[in-house]
């Protein structure tokens, strides 16, 4: 098997995650889809790291994980406070910027 297949898989997962962001209204699920996209990217990094034979790709994936963790913490805090004030976790409800 050609390891390029890992890249195809990463692309597929990324696309699925992106579609999820677009179609789901529940902020938590949207967040999960974002995580899925990040993980797809990580998979691509790891696969590239193997292709090029150096560890820089893995380092980037590592940093991605750390940043994703920070992002999840803040994002979930926002969702919780949003839910507290509006009793809804729907991203469509947070649409006060329209006319």
């Amino acid at each position: 098997m050609n390891p390029v297949n890992y890249l195809y898989l990463a692309a597929l997962l990324f696309t699925i995650g992106a579609a999820g962001v677009l179609i789901r209204r529940n902020a938590i699920v949207v967040f999960m889809c974002v995580e899925l996209m990040l993980n797809a990217c990580n998979l691509a990094f790891v696969a590239f790291s193997r292709m090029h034979g150096n560890l820089d790709g893995q380092i980037i994936a590592f940093f991605t994980m750390v940043v994703a963790a920070a992002e999840v913490v803040v994002g979930l805090a926002i969702i919780v406070s949003l839910f507290r004030s509006r009793h809804s976790a729907s991203v469509d409800d947070a649409s006060l910027m329209k006319l």
Partner: peptide, 30 residues
């Protein structure tokens, strides 16, 4: 897959941090 690609450290971190911590955080919020 990380493990299969030779990223042993990342594979373990993925399970411990992501699956173990972040996903549990998600479940708490849910």
């Amino acid at each position: 897959f990380y493990l299969a690609n030779g990223a042993y450290f990342l594979g373990v971190v993925q399970i411990v941090v992501y699956t173990g911590a972040i996903m549990m955080l998600f479940l708490f919020v849910v």
